[in-house]
Structures are given as structure tokens and as C-alpha cells.
Nucleic acid binder design. Structure first.
Lengths: 338, 338
DNA sequence: TAAGACGTTGGAAACGTTACCGTCCAGGAG
DNA sequence: CTCCTGGACGGTAACGTTTCCAACGTCTTA
């Protein structure tokens, strides 16, 4: 920058003004400065910029679990787009599984002076963020110990819709497969229960299956076990996209061993759901909007444009009927050909 | 940091030394400093740290296309893990589609003083990176105008394996569906051609189908068209995971209209490939290793530990047989039940 | 004509850290 | 006892910006 100033025959302040939009600089001077910038290939150093008193970097942090899960990937992509439009980059914190690793990752990010944090929180207390002086938006689920913005999906509504749909088809014994995550899954279960109560149907608690792990394998194992019981369910609601995969895999392998193939509804849409042997009915929501909203909100907070009390944005869920949820409880058919 | 120094009754230099490992500091002094750090909740400011002469930030940049594509998501996840283990964060540049947007994103990242760049390059010249003074590793495909490290997959070998497999099954009319990407797709096609030449079989050039876009819809349309010809292929090799999806969708919809359902082999594995009505045979490689290798290489370059001339790492491809590639060319069967 | 107002510019301080240099002290060697 | 060595520590410059203040010139107004 000093070189540019010398070359243009002006002071540093003037160069800075030009770089930042050029207000209060005579046109002719600005031209000269811009010429010097081009000739020298000067580029502003964002690091030095962020060092200024009180200033933050023009980066947003995103802390989430497995990017390989399309759910998280969608959030990342969408928030990246929104941030990029405002000239912000997105820093991904490396997230190990343990909650302690998450805390460490977050602090790493804070030490980088990010302008804001978007966090898909693990369980564990996030109170340490309270006084960090950096705006935080939680995504998909709230965190404990801190009152901050949160963007999420209507989990309870989604659980209710799924159950209502199956109940309407006449199912009375519906299993629900639960991943070991606290908040969202709990809400989905609550919606599931409410729908049953509203329909006046008692839930067989042995069909409320809590998995030790949230992956497809655990769901596959649980599904096989429950379907091979003497009194298997006639329908299954799986609370997560990966879980749905496991459920379907188990049903596929069980195949003709089953007298009645159960109806299936999954929470969260997934790619190829419509191309499986029986297309899968799901409760879906606009995941990308989750990421976009979070980024937008965070940018407004970071710029100081938004000083409202912590917001709570809830996106709706909708049922996408594809076939697997439409099987009646007394269907005598084996696996259908399509 | 000044506060810490005062509180511990030492100078700034000492605090700095303690923060950085504590060499050359008496144990007792270090204890006092550490106590002060804890009491004040001091955290090192990475921004100021990166400002030091010649220093770069402890961030790696990752520039890639659509995170929603599991292929890219795997790369991102893997590189994130490796970087995180060395205390590096990963900054994702927002990538619009146009090559100009990519250049802008890269320069944004460079201005943030990242320690290195991992780029999955679009077409377009990357010569402007030559003198940027920051190490670059290209991922999945090389870039023009610059001689840098590159980590990629054996595209030609993969194309060859796929074609060989289909040829061994007796197929003589194999269509290949090509996405409009330059390098990788070209190599896959080359392997495809070599296998044909080695088998002494002439390729019907009207079965070499170049798509205008790389999405599933384009592949679906092209597949429908080619299958409804008077002389349809007996097998299809799709050069990309999204394309494979489109191919399968078209075949599913065509269904019984087809006299012979073609064999299908896809490039790149994808989730649920084994659960489709006919499980899909694919040519797969270790995508995560792609990301890991890139990150490792870049970290070594950034630290100065690796000063070798630009490396070229090529990961092998392997065939995963699942069924769709095993259909003989004269199969009279309609869609199989499983 | 003098005084103020305003637009344009230059200069310097400040941000938080690290690296270098110099000082100080203790202990060992001559 | 003196000198030297080496370890421990303090102080300061430097990194590249932005922002504030002062200075200067021009124009308007009384």
C-alpha cells in the first residue's frame, strides 16, 4: 500500500479511501491511485484489515458434523452462497465427534476473529459462548446455556404429519426408530405421540426404538429385530435420512421372509428416494433455506443491522408421498415389483 | 496479552514464549503465566499472529463446486479432518459457476493470507496463481497455465475397466454418456476407447454422447433418446455419478417399452447404488483419500517441509460389481424383480 | 476584505502478536 | 577473584490496514 501511495504520489490515507469506495477523494486523484494499484497488482490484506480496533474478519464460521451427510452439505452450500454474496468467506471448523472437540473447534474459530458463528450444536453446554462478543446462530437445533438466534425445522409438526399419514392409512402398530440425538429427535417423537393421541390410538412402547448410534447399520439391525418379532409393526417411521436407509436395507434383505411388508415414512428427503423398488414417502423441508436463513441472520447481526432479541425461525415440513407410506396395514402382497 | 503479562508480572516476550510452547522459560514463571491466562480467559488472536512479517494464517482454502455433490463433499470432509489435526482451519470460497467467479473467489482467499490453496479447478486459465507466493494443490483435475501439485484419480484406467467389463460380457454396442467437463471426462473416454481397441471392437460414434450440461436431467433426456433409437445400445457407461442417476431414471421410466434393458456401469460410487431395483455396478475410487492427500501435501508445502518439484498423485480405480453391469447383451428379460 | 465552511489530503496512532537484541544474573573455569 | 558463558527475561520494532485529526486551499457569505 505504501508502494501504491508513492507511485500515485499520494498519502496512505488516500489510498485507503480509494480502496474502500473512494468517498471524499477527488476523481482525478482516485484515477491515479487506481492506476497505481493495477500496475503494482496490489491487493488488500484482509488480515491486517481485521486487526483494526474492534474489527472482525470478513469470515463466518460454520461448525457442523459430517459433511458427507447431504443434510449438512446442503446447509453448508446454502450458507456459503449467501455469505459469498456479501463478500464473506466461510470457515469450516474441523469437528471431531466428542463435544469437547466441538468446543475446541469453536474456540479456534473465535480466535480467528470470525464475524459470526453458525453452529449445528452437539449436545453439551454452550454457555462459554455467551460473553465471547461474537454473534452466534444455531442451526437445526438449539443449544443449552445460551440464548441465541436459532433456525430450525418444525420437527414436531413433521413427526405429527408422518404419523397422521400412516394412521390415516389404517395403521395401528407403527414403529418409530430414533437416532440418539437429543432435541430434534425428541420433538419428532412428540409429534408422533400427539398424532396418536389425537387419533385415540395407544402406542405400543416396545415399538419406540431408541438406537445407540445414528447410522444406517444400527437402524438396519433394529429393523430386522423388530420385524422378526411375533407381533411386528405394520408401519415404520424412521427419524433420520441415514436411518431410513438402514430400515430399507433391512426390509430388502428380509424380503420374502416377511408376511406383510410394512409401510415406511422417513424424516428428511434424500437423493434417489423416488427410484428405490418402492419409492419412499418422506417428510421433507427446505434444508437449503435453513442455511440461507442462518447466514442472512448472522450477517445482519454481525453488521449491527439487526439488534432484535434472539429470533427463532421455524421452517415448515411437508409430506412427499411416493408410495412406501401408502401401503395399507393388511396388504397381503410381498414386495411389489415397482 | 499485555494484561496477562502485567498480571503475571512478566514481559510480553515471556507470555509469547509460554503461549508458543514455553521454551526458554523457567518452569515457575511459566506456571504463573499460565495461571494468569486462565484467570483472564486470554486467547491468542490468530489474526494478529498472521500479520507478522512473512507469516501466513493457519488456514487452508478449499475451492470447489457443488458441495451437494457427494463427491465434493467427501473431499471437503477429508481435507477438513487432516487440516484440523494440524490446527488448520479450512476456508471455503464461495464458488459461482462462471470461471470469472472462481478467479474472484480465489483472490479473495489469497487476500486472507491463507497458507495454501486446494482447488478443484474449473476450465479457465490459472496462470495468475503462478507468482502469488502461496502453495497450490489441484484436486481431481489439473489446471492450465500453472505447474503445481495435483492429486487425482486414474480416470483413464477407470474408463478402461468399465469398458473392459462390459466388453467381457459380450456387449458390442456400448453408449458412453459424457458430462461437459474437460479433463477427467476426456480421460475416461480415452480409457473407454482403448479398451475397445484392445478388444478389436469398433465404436459406433453415435453412441458417444456429449451432454450440454452435467446434471441428471440432461442424462435422462439423452438416455431416453438413445434407447428409443432403432439401434439402441446394449450397455451404457455413464461418466459421472449424477449422470448415472439420470440414466437409471430414464431406464426406469422407459421400463417395459424396452425390448432389452441395457447393462449400466457408472463412474463414481454413490449412496444407495446397491439398493436400486437392479443394483448398480460402478467404477469407484477412494474419494476421501483424494482430499486427505491433497491436504497433507499442501500442509507440507506450506510448512516448507516439502520442496520437491510438483508432484502428481494418482489414485487407482476399481470395479464394484453389483448387477447392472452383469446383464448379458442378449438378455430377453424385462426389468428384473430384484 | 475577513471569516468561516467545506472538501481534499497527509500523517500518525493503534490493533495484537512475534523475533530479535540487549541486559541481567548465576555459575563455572581460569 | 575475575572473566566468561549461557540461560532467562524485558523491551521494541515491525507486519498492513483504517480512522482520526490537523492542515491546506477554495469558495461562500457577511
Amino acid at each position: 500500500m505504501i508502494d501504491v501511495a508513492r507511485r500515485a504520489g499520494v498519502g496512505l490515507g488516500t489510498v485507503s479511501r480509494v480502496v474502500n469506495g473512494g468517498h471524499g477523494v477527488r476523481d482525478e486523484t482516485a484515477q491515479r491511485v487506481r492506476a497505481a494499484i493495477d500496475e503494482l497488482g496490489f491487493q488488500r490484506n484482509e488480515v491486517a484489515r481485521a486487526l483494526r480496533p474492534g474489527k472482525k474478519s470478513t469470515s463466518l464460521a460454520l461448525v457442523l458434523g459430517d459433511l458427507t451427510n447431504p443434510f449438512y452439505a446442503s446447509i453448508a452450500k446454502a450458507s456459503l452462497e449467501v455469505a459469498g454474496q456479501s463478500g464473506f468467506a466461510v470457515v469450516l471448523g474441523s469437528v471431531d465427534e466428542d463435544p469437547e472437540g466441538e468446543k475446541r473447534a469453536i474456540q479456534e474459530l473465535v480466535s480467528r476473529q470470525v464475524a459470526g458463528l453458525m453452529i449445528v450444536p452437539d449436545q453439551g453446554d454452550h454457555a462459554f459462548l455467551q460473553g465471547a462478543g461474537v454473534p452466534v446462530v444455531f442451526v437445526d437445533r438449539p443449544a443449552t446455556g445460551i440464548d441465541a438466534d436459532i433456525v430450525m425445522v418444525d420437527n414436531e409438526g413433521g413427526g405429527r404429519i408422518a404419523a397422521e399419514h400412516l394412521l390415516e392409512q389404517g395403521h395401528q402398530r407403527i414403529a418409530i426408530i430414533l437416532a440418539p440425538s437429543y432435541y430434534t429427535i425428541g420433538r419428532r417423537l412428540r409429534g408422533f405421540r400427539r398424532a396418536h393421541r389425537a387419533a385415540g390410538i395407544e402406542i405400543d412402547e416396545s415399538l419406540v426404538i431408541q438406537l445407540p448410534e445414528g447410522n444406517a447399520e444400527a437402524a438396519e439391525k433394529a429393523t430386522r429385530e423388530v420385524m422378526l418379532r411375533a407381533d411386528p409393526p405394520t408401519a415404520i417411521f424412521s427419524s433420520t435420512n441415514f436411518l431410513t436407509e438402514g430400515v430399507l436395507r433391512a426390509l430388502g434383505e428380509l424380503g420374502s421372509e416377511l408376511e406383510h411388508e410394512p409401510a415406511v415414512v422417513g424424516f428428511d428427503d434424500f437423493r434417489l428416494a423416488d427410484m428405490l423398488p418402492t419409492p419412499v414417502t418422506v417428510v421433507a423441508s427446505d434444508i437449503a433455506e435453513l442455511g440461507r436463513s442462518a447466514a442472512r441472520l448472522l450477517l445482519d447481526r454481525a453488521s449491527g443491522a439487526d439488534t432484535r432479541p434472539p429470533q427463532r425461525i421455524v421452517l415448515p415440513c411437508a409430506l412427499i408421498e411416493r408410495g412406501s407410506g401408502e401401503r395399507p396395514p393388511d396388504s397381503a402382497g410381498k414386495r411389489s415389483t415397482r
